[in-house]
Deep mutational scan, measured.
Amino acid sequence: TLFEALYDYEARTEDDLSFHKGEKFQILNSSEGDWWEARSLTTGETGYIPSIYLAPV
């Protein structure tokens, strides 16, 4: 399942991933609670993103 960003997000740590509204992600690991490891389909970068900023596509 792909997810789309509902809002912009600016990374706060080196493990976080910055993204823009409308960016799409492949989720790599969603077992860490509210922060999911994801790969951006726009940039190819991976990192942790807040799941509350996402909606399934």
Rank of each mutant, 00 (worst) to 15 (best):
T1P: 11
T1K: 12
T1H: 12
T1G: 11
T1M: 14
L2D: 04
L2R: 05
L2V: 13
F3V: 05
F3H: 05
F3R: 03
F3Y: 15
E4M: 14
E4Y: 15
E4P: 00
E4W: 11
A5F: 01
A5Q: 00
A5P: 00
A5Y: 01
A5I: 02
L6K: 08
L6N: 04
L6G: 02
L6R: 07
L6Q: 07
L6C: 07
L6E: 03
Y7S: 09
Y7W: 13
Y7A: 12
Y7F: 12
Y7L: 09
Y7Q: 11
Y7D: 08
D8S: 10
D8N: 09
D8Y: 05
D8T: 07
D8V: 03
D8H: 07
Y9N: 02
Y9G: 04
Y9H: 06
Y9F: 09
Y9I: 03
Y9R: 06
Y9T: 01
E10V: 14
E10Y: 10
E10A: 11
E10G: 06
A11R: 09
A11I: 02
A11T: 05
A11W: 02
A11D: 02
A11F: 03
R12Q: 14
R12D: 09
R12A: 10
R12N: 10
R12L: 12
R12I: 11
R12F: 08
R12W: 08
R12P: 09
R12G: 08
T13E: 09
T13D: 11
T13H: 15
T13R: 15
T13M: 12
T13Q: 11
E14S: 13
E14H: 13
E14C: 12
E14T: 13
E14L: 12
E14A: 14
E14Y: 10
E14W: 09
D15H: 15
D15W: 15
D15A: 14
D15L: 14
D15P: 05
D15N: 15
D15Q: 14
D16C: 14
D16H: 15
D16T: 15
D16P: 02
D16A: 15
D16R: 15
D16S: 15
D16M: 14
D16Q: 15
L17Q: 03
L17W: 06
L17S: 02
L17C: 03
L17R: 03
L17G: 01
S18W: 03
S18N: 06
S18K: 05
S18G: 08
S18M: 03
S18L: 02
S18I: 02
S18H: 06
S18C: 04
F19V: 06
F19I: 08
F19R: 00
F19N: 00
F19K: 00
F19P: 00
F19S: 02
H20A: 11
H20F: 14
H20L: 12
H20W: 09
H20M: 12
H20E: 09
K21D: 01
K21Y: 05
K21I: 08
K21A: 10
K21E: 05
G22V: 00
G22W: 05
G22R: 03
G22K: 04
G22C: 05
G22T: 03
G22H: 06
G22F: 06
E23P: 00
E23G: 02
E23W: 08
E23I: 01
E23D: 15
K24Y: 12
K24H: 09
K24P: 03
K24R: 14
K24A: 06
K24G: 03
F25E: 00
F25Y: 02
F25N: 00
F25K: 00
F25G: 00
F25R: 00
F25S: 00
F25D: 00
F25M: 03
F25I: 02
Q26H: 10
Q26G: 02
Q26D: 07
Q26M: 13
Q26L: 14
I27C: 03
I27T: 02
I27E: 00
I27W: 01
I27P: 01
I27N: 01
I27D: 00
L28S: 04
L28M: 08
L28D: 02
L28H: 04
L28R: 04
L28V: 08
L28C: 06
L28A: 04
N29C: 08
N29Y: 07
N29Q: 08
N29R: 09
N29E: 07
N29A: 08
N29S: 11
S30L: 09
S30T: 13
S30A: 12
S30H: 11
S30C: 12
S30P: 08
S31Q: 11
S31L: 12
S31Y: 09
S31N: 11
S31F: 09
S31K: 11
E32F: 12
E32T: 12
E32K: 15
E32I: 12
E32D: 14
E32L: 14
E32W: 11
G33Y: 09
G33S: 13
G33Q: 13
D34T: 11
D34H: 09
D34G: 12
D34Q: 11
D34N: 09
D34Y: 15
W35V: 09
W35T: 07
W35I: 10
W35L: 10
W35C: 09
W35P: 08
W35S: 07
W35E: 04
W36P: 00
W36F: 06
W36R: 01
W36M: 04
E37K: 13
E37T: 11
E37Y: 15
E37N: 08
E37G: 05
E37H: 14
E37C: 15
A38G: 08
A38D: 00
A38S: 04
A38R: 00
A38E: 01
A38K: 00
A38L: 03
R39T: 10
R39L: 10
R39D: 01
S40F: 03
S40N: 11
S40L: 06
S40A: 06
S40E: 02
L41T: 07
L41V: 08
L41E: 06
L41G: 02
L41Q: 07
L41N: 04
T42N: 09
T42S: 12
T42H: 09
T42G: 06
T42I: 09
T42F: 11
T43C: 03
T43I: 01
T43D: 02
T43H: 03
T43Y: 02
G44I: 01
G44N: 08
G44L: 07
G44E: 05
G44P: 00
E45S: 09
E45M: 15
E45K: 15
E45T: 08
E45L: 15
E45P: 00
E45Q: 15
E45R: 15
T46D: 03
T46G: 03
T46I: 14
T46L: 07
T46Q: 10
T46R: 10
T46H: 08
T46K: 10
G47D: 01
G47L: 05
G47R: 04
G47M: 06
G47F: 06
G47A: 04
G47Y: 06
Y48E: 02
Y48I: 09
Y48A: 05
Y48C: 09
Y48S: 06
I49S: 01
I49G: 01
I49L: 08
I49F: 02
I49T: 02
P50K: 13
P50Q: 13
P50M: 14
P50W: 15
P50G: 06
P50I: 06
P50V: 04
P50L: 14
S51P: 07
S51D: 02
S51K: 14
S51Y: 10
S51T: 07
I52L: 13
I52R: 14
I52Y: 13
I52K: 15
I52F: 12
I52P: 07
I52M: 13
I52W: 15
Y53G: 05
Y53L: 12
Y53I: 06
Y53P: 01
Y53D: 02
Y53R: 03
Y53M: 11
Y53H: 05
Y53Q: 03
L54W: 01
L54V: 12
L54Y: 01
L54K: 01
A55H: 10
A55V: 13
A55F: 10
A55N: 07
A55G: 09
A55R: 13
P56Y: 07
P56C: 06
P56H: 06
P56Q: 09
P56D: 05
P56K: 08
P56M: 09
V57H: 06
V57K: 04
V57F: 09
V57R: 03
V57G: 04
V57Y: 10
V57N: 05
V57S: 08
V57W: 10
